[in-house]
Design a binder for these strands. Structure first.
Length: 201
DNA sequence: TGTCCGATTGGT
DNA sequence: CCAATCGGACAG
């Protein structure tokens, strides 16, 4: 089995670099009978609290929900929005430095039959091409909030480093309230990958 | 306790 | 374009 990404991958200081380097990595969730459901990360966004107006931790906001963002790099931050969807994030940097990377889309790799069961009626390219969708397909919910990514509930595995020429970037999605932070090009995706979420590229 | 709104999605 | 849907954040 391929090794889990080590702690040092997550505890680096620059969340934007970590976000870019997460492209191509494998997100793994164990399923029944020692099977796995997994996907290759194809789209991410960096959130650099407490300065970043778009981050939940903006201004040092520290509540029951955001507390997870203040944990050690290599922790899962799973939150619930719009009354129906979960969103999976990777906490980065040291403890008390509330940075995180939102995983916006993955390409199915293992367990695609289970993903189809969990997203009935959806075509394969529509199983995991959005942050809420991939949580449904992979079986991620708030029970995984604060899980250690070096533990056995959810983790990431290494993969080949993508050359910069295969990566595109642009502004983050759904943060119209973030004022001067709206235009930061902190969304990254793999060029021409069909599993990147829809809406402007 | 009451109000406002969201790091989205799917259907019109 | 817009409704769904409900927990989190914050004011009072």
């Amino acid at each position: 089995m391929i090794d889990k990404l080590p702690r040092e991958f997550y505890t680096r200081l620059n969340v934007v670099s970590v976000a870019r380097e997460l492209l191509g990595k494998l997100l793994v969730v164990p399923a029944r009978n020692r099977t796995r459901v997994s996907g290759k990360i194809v789209e991410v966004e960096a959130y650099r609290g407490p300065q970043d107006r778009a981050a939940h931790s903006y201004g040092g906001r520290r509540t029951k929900r955001t507390e997870t963002m203040y944990g050690l790099g290599g922790t899962a931050y799973v939150f619930f929005v719009y009354g129906m969807y979960n969103q999976f994030n990777v906490v980065t940097n040291d403890r008390d430095s509330p940075h995180a990377v939102l995983i916006r889309a993955v390409e199915p790799v293992e367990g695609i039959d289970l993903m189809r069961q969990r997203r009935p009626g959806k075509s394969d390219h529509n199983l995991t091409n959005g942050p809420g969708k991939l949580c449904i397909a992979l079986g991620i919910d708030r029970k995984l909030d604060a899980a250690d990514l070096l533990g056995n509930k959810v983790w990431l595995e290494d993969a080949e480093q993508l050359p910069r020429s295969r990566i595109l970037s642009g502004p983050r999605i759904g943060i119209d309230y973030a004022e001067e932070w709206i235009d930061k090009p902190w969304r990254f995706w793999i060029k021409n990958n069909p599993y990147v979420s829809r809406r402007k590229q």
